Simulated assay, not measured.
Amino acid sequence: MYKKIYCFLLCSVVFLNCSKPCIAQSSSTNVTSFKVLEDSLMLFDKNRDRQIPVALYFPQTTKKLKNQPLVIVSHGYWQNKGGSNKAYTSIAKKLATHGYFVASIQHELPNDDLIPTTGIPQIVRRPFWERGSDNILFVLNELKKTQSYLDFKHVVLIGHSNGGDMSILFAHKHPDLVDKVISLDSRRMPFPRTAQPKLYSLRSSDQVADEGVLPSIEEQKKYGITIIKLNNTIHNDMDDNANEAQRKEINDYIMRFLK
């Protein structure tokens, strides 16, 4: 099975590099916009005996984009329902139109245990964040084998809610492997108090992070961490549930963070 997956990845590389171009030019911004292609992978981590579904979004080009930027997206908690890695298409497609290669991971499988609803979140949810961090690392290493043209020196993680906690944990464990982390209202895992990787967070209007999770104003200034509250967006509307105005605001901030 692993060989089949590896062959599929290789085919994806050929497909990505041999597609016909379709580039639109915006008259208002004069910015080149790529047509977006979508694909999917079913990876398998034999060391953990675990499948990892991945949705891919990337620009349609005639040749490799040298050092093409890579973004890995991690979804919020979906109670093990399928399709969670395709719940952030607004963000993924926006990134792909600007030349980014986006890998969106499904962290939950139907037979996984549900996250406990009682107990101290930082304790009872930690195994789920650890699993998510391991998933991110595995996907990153697999992409290095097959999409070697990507820019692995400046990897970006974007995570919503529980997926944001996973991404923040990854920054703690592997600070040398990620350049930027964008948290969409993660509430439990404390942010690293460090200048590297660069940390950004969009906060909802209706939910508050646990004490000690977000850096203080002084720490934000010291380490260059950016925290922005979205006054018109609730926690559950930071994925594809967002309306047009909310999507634009979220995507505009993300693109600003990535510059």
Rank of each mutant, 00 (worst) to 15 (best):
L150Y: 03
L214E: 07
Q68M: 14
E130L: 11
P127Y: 02
K3P: 04
A209Q: 08
S186A: 15
Q106A: 12
R50E: 14
I123Q: 14
F44K: 03
I234R: 13
G224T: 12
H235I: 02
N80P: 02
T117G: 05
K144G: 07
L95D: 07
Q147L: 14
L140I: 00
D237W: 09
Q60D: 10
Q25W: 12
K46D: 13
I254K: 11
K3C: 00
Y253L: 06
Q79G: 03
L140T: 03
A242K: 05
L43T: 10
H107F: 01
T117S: 13
K66S: 14
P192S: 08
L65F: 00
E219Y: 06
L109A: 12
Q196N: 12
G159E: 09
L41M: 14
D45M: 06
K20M: 10
P215L: 10
D210K: 07
K3S: 13
D179C: 03
K94A: 13
S161R: 05
V102Y: 11
L214V: 01
K93H: 03
S183D: 11
S74Q: 13
F8W: 14
H107S: 08
R203D: 03
R131D: 06
V156C: 00
R48H: 11
A242E: 02
D239R: 03
R187C: 04
F191S: 01
P197T: 06
D206C: 07
I225P: 01
L169P: 08
K248E: 13
D252M: 07
Q106W: 01
N135V: 00
I227T: 06
I105G: 03
S33V: 04
K66E: 15
F152E: 04
V13K: 15
T29L: 10
P215T: 10
D49H: 11
P175N: 09
P21H: 03
M1L: 13
H235M: 03
I91D: 00
Y100G: 06
D49N: 15
L65D: 01
G163L: 09
S40C: 10
E130T: 13
